[in-house]
């Protein structure tokens, strides 16, 4: 069966290594994934901050295009896009008046037939069952899984993991040999939406996250969101200057972590695009 993928804008630019690693592990497991044809931006924070109808219409156009092309299961690696698509689906599936209004705006009949998966749901469903046989090397690191906001909240709409202390990424990392830590900032906000308009606030919020990870002894932070990655990795210099110390804990996408365990090299996983250098210690190697 073909699975649709909605990369979203970040994954074509600032988070292209995330996109590469999603595709790389899908290929390694023989999963057929196809981009939703002619996909548009989900509208992100900007659309729902300024106009409700626009914030529903843009994701509805994406979902309708998936339906039209027979992609009834779609993975959305960006947590922010995932949130917008899930919110739109929730609102349109539960409100026929809204559904008709938005269908009129996008000039297409939104059917509500698409099932949306975040990246960890995708991993749990298609990768985890066959993971053990393919692992070539294991992590020898203590890691902090950082979920951020939109992967888990609001639980009422997403119905995914535990909202206050999610475990799904920790479970995957445990399989890869790593030691997932208990820490306090798992679901705190990094400041995503204000990353350019209020950089000082973002540095402060992201700083508390990085500092807690360090305090608990993390050697890497594992993420599943390009906004979280951008703020924790690309903005590290300004975070460190706010904190008044140099913290060099790398930030790794969960899909890069899986790819690394499968034995993929830097060229494939594109760690070279990160601002904070990635160092992983190998625990054991199996041939």
């Amino acid at each position: 069966m073909k699975i649709g993928i909605y990369p979203g804008c970040s994954l074509t630019g600032s988070a292209r290594e995330y996109n590469q690693s999603v595709i790389a592990i899908a290929e390694a497991f023989g999963i057929d994934i196809e981009q939703i044809p002619d996909w548009n931006c989900c509208g992100a924070t900007a659309a729902h901050n300024l106009n409700k109808d626009l914030s529903l219409a843009l994701p509805a156009r994406i979902l309708t295009s998936a339906e039209k092309h027979g992609l009834f299961e779609v993975v959305v690696p960006c947590a922010a896009c995932y949130s917008r698509l899930m919110t739109t689906k929730h609102e349109l599936d539960h409100d026929p008046v809204k559904r008709n209004k938005i269908s009129e705006i996008i000039e297409a009949d939104y059917q509500g037939k698409v099932q949306i998966l975040n990246v960890i749901e995708f991993i749990d469903k298609y990768i985890t069952p066959k993971l053990d046989d393919k692992i070539k090397r294991k992590f020898n690191n203590k890691i902090a899984c950082y979920y951020g906001c939109l992967l888990v909240r609001p639980a009422k709409i997403l119905k995914y993991d535990r909202a206050e202390d999610p475990q799904s990424m920790d479970t995957v990392m445990l399989k890869l040999g790593a030691e997932p830590l208990q820490w306090n900032r798992k679901v705190e906000c990094c400041g995503a939406g204000l990353t350019m308009a209020k950089t000082e606030i973002v540095a402060k919020l992201s700083g508390t996250i990085i500092e807690d990870a360090q305090h608990q002894g993390a050697e890497a932070i594992i993420v599943a969101c390009p906004m979280c990655h951008a703020n924790l990795d690309m903005r590290r210099k300004s975070i460190n200057s706010v904190l008044g110390k140099k913290i060099d804990i790398p930030v790794i996408y969960i899909t890069q972590a899986i790819g690394w365990a499968l034995g993929m090299d830097d060229k494939k996983l594109e760690f070279f695009r990160h601002f904070v250098p990635v160092n992983i210690t190998v625990k054991e190697v199996s041939v």
């Binding site: 906001c149 939109l150 909240r153 609001p154 009422k156 206050e164 906000c189 939406g193 204000l194 606030i201």
Partner: peptide
């Protein structure tokens, strides 16, 4: 300033 991080909604006893 609201980041739409959804923490308030998640924790609100009155939803």
């Amino acid at each position: 300033l609201c980041l739409s991080c959804e923490m308030c909604y998640q924790r609100c006893p009155m939803e």
